[in-house]
């Protein structure tokens, strides 16, 4: 109860009463949906389907209102285009472009994650490294990775490397900064306990600090995954001939609005799916998260 105690006994009774009623309603509402793991799954799926249905319905209405497929194609037209791109696209098709983009993300994001965790741990382990890198990362972080694109092309040519680097630049700072924060936030008593059990510096790092910081690090890895999808188009601006970002840019040039929609939706779907996969990995790697362990 956050409210101050009521002045009169009657008012107090009323307050208790309304709280009882509220509690009652709450418990009845809870019973509407099945509980437990399956209940959660059903609830999530139901909310997802409802939200999607709502968006598609509004989109349909708007498309009918505009009545110009070059401005806003209807969901039906977009679905037709998706089907077309899926079945007979070949090297220009959706599957190929999605594959190319997915591999770029995996390499760029994966590289950024590995570098971010490694540098983050180095930063907390050594004051000099922290003092040197912390301001650099903070200064570099707000610069959009796209700004580096022309430079990267001059330095590394038009191959895959600059694309990986742009995605890596997006991923690296958030993972490095989160790793530093997660390691610094490790309960000091866990470390003291390990030391008094005979663990040396390296053993404490491997067996206590890293597992204890893992939940925080994993959250940043997931966030970074989302961010790297969001800078995919930027990465694929650089002299590309494939990829979802390239597909969108190319379609834009030819006023092929349905393909733009297909590209956008595919990026959204893939980002969503990779995030789900990472969530599952998270639940498997850190089953103790949120269990109030100390």
């Amino acid at each position: 109860m956050t409210d101050l105690p009521s002045a009169t006994p009657d008012a107090a009774l009323e307050q208790v009463d309304s709280e009882l009623v509220r509690g009652h309603r709450l418990s009845r509402k809870r019973r509407l949906l099945p509980t437990g793991r399956w209940g959660d799954f059903i609830a999530t799926t139901a909310s997802l389907i409802t939200a999607l249905a709502l968006v598609v319905a509004l989109w349909w209405i708007a498309a009918i209102a505009f009545n110009d497929p070059n401005v806003l194609p209807s969901p039906e037209e977009v679905a037709d285009r998706a089907d077309e791109l899926l079945t007979n696209g070949g090297d220009l098709g959706l599957v190929h472009n999605a594959q190319v983009s997915l591999i770029r993300i995996l390499i760029g994001w994966g590289g950024g994650v590995i570098a971010g965790v490694a540098v983050g741990i180095a930063m907390v382990s050594n004051r000099w490294i922290l003092g040197l890198l912390d301001p650099l990362i903070e200064l570099g972080r707000p610069i959009p990775p796209l700004a580096f694109a022309p430079l990267l092309v001059i330095w590394f040519g038009i191959g895959e490397l600059p694309k990986y680097m742009i995605l890596g630049f997006t991923t690296f700072p958030i993972v490095a900064i989160s790793t530093v924060a997660a390691v610094k936030g490790v309960d000091r008593n866990w470390i003291l306990a390990a030391q008094s059990l005979g663990a040396g510096r390296l053993y404490v790092l491997r067996r206590v600090t890293i597992p204890a910081a893992l939940p925080g690090i994993l959250v940043s890895i997931r966030l970074a995954n989302g961010l790297s999808w969001s800078s995919l188009v930027a990465a694929e601006i650089i002299a590309s001939t494939s990829g979802l970002g390239w597909m969108i840019l190319q379609a834009g040039r030819f006023l092929d609005t349905p393909t733009i929609f297909v590209g956008i939706i595919t990026i959204g779907l893939l980002a969503f799916i990779t995030d789900r996969v990472l969530r599952v990995a998270e639940a498997w790697l850190v089953p103790w998260r949120g269990k109030g362990a100390s």
Partner: peptide, 19 residues
């Protein structure tokens, strides 16, 4: 000068490793 396994410590909270 430093912690040592010969001097074991039991804390107020168990501080077990949940992993």
């Amino acid at each position: 000068t430093a912690p040592d396994a010969a001097r074991g410590v039991v804390f107020q909270k168990p501080h077990l490793y949940p992993w």
